[in-house]
């Protein structure tokens, strides 16, 4: 399995290279450049600026310069945010996004599995229908709707429960303080809880119907043991394949939530860099995303083999 992981890792490098190349040239294809929107500068100054960033050279030459820098782990300076390198910006934003995404995923996995299992155990009863209707809501209502509603309730109106003030801040990072985290993490987690609970419900129902669960019941095992040992592991398999891309998506794709709550994650770089033609920042963010997606998919595949002994990666 170690050699499989190593080979997958090596196999990921060409993929990454293709992504970088593709993104680099696509960016250049878009009209405009990083310094176009500035107020009009005398041509010679504009030329100097462009020369400072190597933008006066042909595109292919820029590409090789970029690759060369990348090989030295240098993502270059940001074209727009003066005095910051892309590396520094990502180093500042990524931990915020990571914390947000991982917290949301942990929350989603816990509640998703719990709700999905409860629904499966009560298949076609009130509880099941209740969970599934909620899940449908969770999937269909987008975060830009849930976020303002929750903000309105907990942030603006404030909630007083038995004399306790349950109000939460409407935005800001505040160094990652818990009250600031609650709303964005909840908003991010809600659709994931919905998807995971539906996935888990389906696979659990299938596992409960399987012959081996019948064997386990025939052994006279108590219900909780059957659920824990025999059902849960096989019912979580589909979840694992879903989680790889999903975690990557949550870590990186939380830009809407980051915008709404004014959080300094890297999601907002994505939009801003694209709009401002901040080539280097854009590339940096794309590389981070690609690494996460490839890496987490690999982790999911390896985890799959751990959960299901029939899957082996010898070849």
């Amino acid at each position: 399995m170690l050699s499989y992981a190593a080979r997958r890792f090596l196999g990921a490098l060409p993929t990454l290279f293709i992504i970088i190349t593709f993104a680099f040239f696509m960016m250049r294809l878009a009209p405009g450049g990083p310094f176009d929107s500035n107020r009009h500068l005398p041509p010679e100054i504009e030329y100097n600026i462009e020369a400072a960033y190597n933008l006066d050279k042909p595109v292919y030459e820029q590409y090789f310069i970029y690759l060369d820098n990348l090989a030295h782990f240098d993502l270059g300076p940001s074209y727009k945010t003066k005095d910051f390198t892309v590396g520094e910006m990502i180093a500042a934003g990524l931990p915020v996004s990571l914390r947000l995404g991982l917290s949301a995923m942990a929350l989603a996995i816990f509640f998703g599995i719990a709700l999905g299992t409860i629904a499966a155990l009560n298949k076609n009863k009130g509880t099941d229908y209740g969970v599934m209707v909620l899940a449908m809501f969770g999937i269909t209502i987008p975060t830009f709707v849930t976020a303002p509603i929750l903000t309105l309730i907990f942030g603006i109106y404030g909630v007083n429960f038995l004399g306790m003030d349950l109000s939460l801040p409407v935005g800001g990072w505040n160094g990652g303080a818990l009250p600031n985290m609650i709303l964005p993490v909840t908003v991010l987690a809600l659709p994931q809880i919905a998807i995971i609970s539906r996935l888990v419900r389906g696979s659990t129902i299938e596992a409960l119907r399987s012959n081996y669960v019948r064997t386990a019941r025939a052994k006279g095992l108590p219900a909780y043991l059957i659920l824990w040992r025999h059902v849960l592991r096989s019912s979580l398999l589909p979840l694992v394949s879903y989680l790889g891309p999903a975690v990557a998506g949550l870590l990186t794709g939380s830009l809407i939530v980051e915008q709404i709550f004014g959080l300094p994650g890297i999601g907002r770089y994505f939009v801003n860099a694209a709009l401002n033609r901040d080539y280097t920042l854009m590339m940096g963010v794309i590389i981070v995303y690609a690494v996460f997606i490839i890496g987490l998919n690999l982790v999911a595949d390896l985890l799959y083999a751990v959960l299901d002994p029939r899957v082996t990666y010898k070849r």
Binding site: R214, T215, A218, G220, R229, H230
Partner: peptide, 23 residues
């Protein structure tokens, strides 16, 4: 469950699907 699996036990037709694959 005190009787089932202890005093009375059962075996099934298809041994591959009737055994838990991950144990």
């Amino acid at each position: 469950n005190r009787v089932r699996g202890s005093n009375i036990t059962m075996i099934f037709q298809d041994p591959l699907t009737s055994l838990t694959p991950h144990m």
